[in-house]
Write a protein that binds this DNA or RNA. Structure first.
Lengths: 211, 211
DNA sequence: ACCTGAACACCGTTCAAGT
DNA sequence: ACCTGAACACCGTTCAAGT
């Protein structure tokens, strides 16, 4: 027999899980209505609690946003890894491209998350340790693939952090430009990602015996 | 004899320049207090007018934000061109690097502008023609340098828009990551820009006779 | 034509008060 | 310890009314 899970009745969050309920409510607001719709009061209402209650669990709105950004970072990491697993890359270059495609795909499917993550939460004096850790995890996934590629002789022997920063900047830039409709894409998402990443791979300078 | 310019007395904006006054007020709010501080009501107050007056000149808040973003785009273009002029580049590659440095420098000095430009104004159904034109001007500056580089044989012979998108993504991504403190820079701004742009130039893949 | 003042429905944040 | 309700200072937006 299955145990019946309590729906969100007024007393459902008195056991200390109001914090989690508020995060879930914020996630729902963000994904369904965008970053504008994400408010502390609306989250409280969705969790069935007064508008002042969240302050028992979050210092201010930014603290809730940071918690949501952390979830977003983890989802982003998962999206990259999922794409890399699905693509069954034969080498580090293909793996790197797959990670990039996963990143871009997550961005276009979840623009709200991207806006929350890179919208200023990291700018505060003391970004929560959870959030920083989630960011490190995302970066680590990229860095690993790059270290691997250097070891395999597939990538230029250079500072892996330098290569990671270039790759991250490229894919993140493309993602934000696309999300904000800064340009009109002429090709599909995958082609966009593979296109710029191959340019990063082979370089945009001429010379060195090219057709 | 110089003509005395009227200060912002209550009657100073009755001549049809309230629109401009509101933009200037918004610019001031943005640069001095950040994007959070930029509100229609505060701009109205700064212009010495009631909070409902702006609606005679802007459809809604987003319209004012779009007007401000347009100014920002033009300043960004000017910053790129100024850096390129100052650097006295000897070839297209140096010129491209200078444009990138100008972009990054403007971004870190005016994060508010970047946030306004790439914060959703372009996402609406009908972004104002002025704003789109300002964006085209910025892109045109980059594209010109790239077309030149291809013609000079300094850049890979490829679709200039493809090369421009890759360059723009790279520099824009680096800028937003830096603005949002997504990573801790180990070197100065110039080195950061030249570093990633040289990687984009020579490519991150191994092979083809490199040391 | 252009602006004002009141009004409405939202915000974030604080604080005394309740259980 | 945890939550509520009222309160305050802000928002964006609308609308009748003034000149």
């Amino acid at each position: 027999m299955k145990i019946r899970v309590r729906r969100k009745s007024p007393q459902a969050y008195q056991h200390g899980d109001l914090r989690e309920a508020l995060i879930q409510a914020g996630l729902k607001l963000l994904t369904e209505g965008g970053v504008e719709t994400l408010s502390l009061r609306a989250a409280a209402q969705l969790a069935g609690v007064s508008h002042a209650a969240p302050y028992r669990h979050f210092r201010d709105k930014n603290a809730l946003v940071a918690a949501i950004a952390e979830r977003g970072f983890r989802l982003l990491t998962a999206a990259m890894q999922a794409e890399a697993a699905l693509a069954k890359p034969r080498d580090s270059r293909e793996r790197l491209t797959a990670l990039g495609i996963g990143y871009l795909h997550f961005a276009t499917q979840n623009p709200g998350y991207l806006r929350v993550i890179f919208g200023g939460v990291l700018c505060g004096d003391d970004p929560p340790a959870d959030l920083r850790a989630a960011g490190e995890a995302a970066y680590g996934t990229l860095r690993e693939a790059i270290v691997d590629g250097i070891a395999q002789g597939e990538l230029r022997t250079a500072d892996p952090d330098q290569l990671a920063l270039a790759s991250w900047s490229m894919v993140h830039g493309l993602s934000t430009l696309l999300i904000n409709r800064a340009f009109e894409p002429q090709v599909a998402e995958r082609e966009l990602a593979t296109g710029v990443l191959h340019l990063l791979g082979d370089g945009i300078y001429a010379e060195r015996g090219r057709p």
